[in-house]
Each structure stands twice: as structure tokens, then as C-alpha cells.
């Protein structure tokens, strides 16, 4: 499916979705309330059938006080990509889990929790994945400080 056709199809599913610019592949910003329902439709809609969640990660826009989640979707049937962006408040990043839509989301969301502290509602097993269970802080946030870290000499 062509990029603009893809975007209009997604917009027909979720009117609140807007185009996310400065991304080199079809990308949409959606409100966080629509996440699980829209994702399920993206997967099940025959014209879209995004059956694979390639990667799920986050970007910490420290200065704008928000964390932006990225869902990179791929359809093995139609061979097209879509990136879905969801903005969350940095102080209370809560979103509903999509682990029942794509199995792999369970672990990718755990990683995002581990690194950014994003909390997932109705996640089956939310705990740290890469760091120790008793780790303090979320390292990939821009303001993460740690007595262990060394600054590179200029």
C-alpha cells in the first residue's frame, strides 16, 4: 500500500490520528487512549494486517516533558511498514499494554519500562528485564544520574 493511502486508511480507523512528520517512513501520532483498540484494528484490518511488531521503544523528549512511544509495525502479508507514535506525560507515563495483540510486546514493553519507566496497564508480567529488580532509576531517560557513571573527558 502506498504511504498516503496507508495514512488515510489509518485515519479512517482513528480520526484523532495525525501525521507525524520528520520520519522517513509512514508515521502516525495517536492519542494514548486509543492504543489497544487501534492496534488491534491495525492488526485485524485485512487491508492493513500489521501482524508483526518489529520494535517498540521510546524517546525521552526531556525538554518538552514528554516521552514518546514508538511502535514499529510491519505486515508480512502486504510488506508495508507503519510507525505509530504515542506521546505520554513524562511525570506519569501510563499506557495500556498491547501484549495481547502481539505476543512480543510483553517483553518489549518490559524493556521500555526498564529503560524509561513507562508503566503498562494490564500487562501480564511487568518487571525489569535487563537490569536488576532493585535498580534505582531509568537509565535511558535523559536526566538519569548514577554515581557509577563517568562523564567522558572533553
Amino acid at each position: 500500500m502506498e504511504a498516503n493511502e496507508l495514512i488515510s486508511t489509518v485515519q479512517s480507523l482513528e480520526p484523532a490520528a495525525t501525521l507525524r512528520d520528520k520520519v522517513d517512513r509512514p508515521a502516525m501520532s495517536v492519542p494514548k487512549e486509543s492504543v489497544p483498540a487501534l492496534m488491534r484494528r491495525l492488526r485485524d484490518e485485512p487491508a492493513l494486517s500489521f501482524d508483526m511488531l518489529c520494535a517498540h521503544t521510546a524517546i525521552d523528549w526531556h525538554n518538552e516533558n514528554r516521552i514518546e512511544l514508538v511502535y514499529q509495525l510491519y505486515s508480512t502479508k502486504h510488506r508495508h511498514y507503519l510507525a505509530v507514535f504515542v506521546s505520554l506525560l513524562r511525570d506519569m507515563p501510563v499506557v495500556t499494554s498491547v501484549s495481547d495483540v502481539w505476543r512480543i510486546a510483553e517483553w518489549q514493553e518490559r524493556e521500555v519500562y526498564d529503560m524509561f519507566g513507562v508503566l503498562y496497564r494490564s500487562h501480564p508480567d511487568l518487571r525489569r528485564i535487563l537490569l536488576d529488580d532493585d535498580w534505582k532509576g531509568f537509565p535511558l531517560r535523559k536526566d538519569y544520574k548514577d554515581e557509577f557513571m563517568l562523564e567522558a573527558p572533553k
Binding site: V94, Y113, L119, Y120, R121, S122, H123, D125, L126, R127, R128, D133
Partner: peptide, 13 residues
């Protein structure tokens, strides 16, 4: 909104 609990490996086991 239900509370989100973060568990540990011990609890998982």
C-alpha cells in the same frame, strides 16, 4: 484505573 504493580523475579517464580 487499576493500580499497576511492578513485580520481581521471585514473585514471578
Amino acid at each position: 484505573m487499576s493500580a499497576i504493580t511492578v513485580t520481581s523475579l521471585d514473585e514471578r517464580i
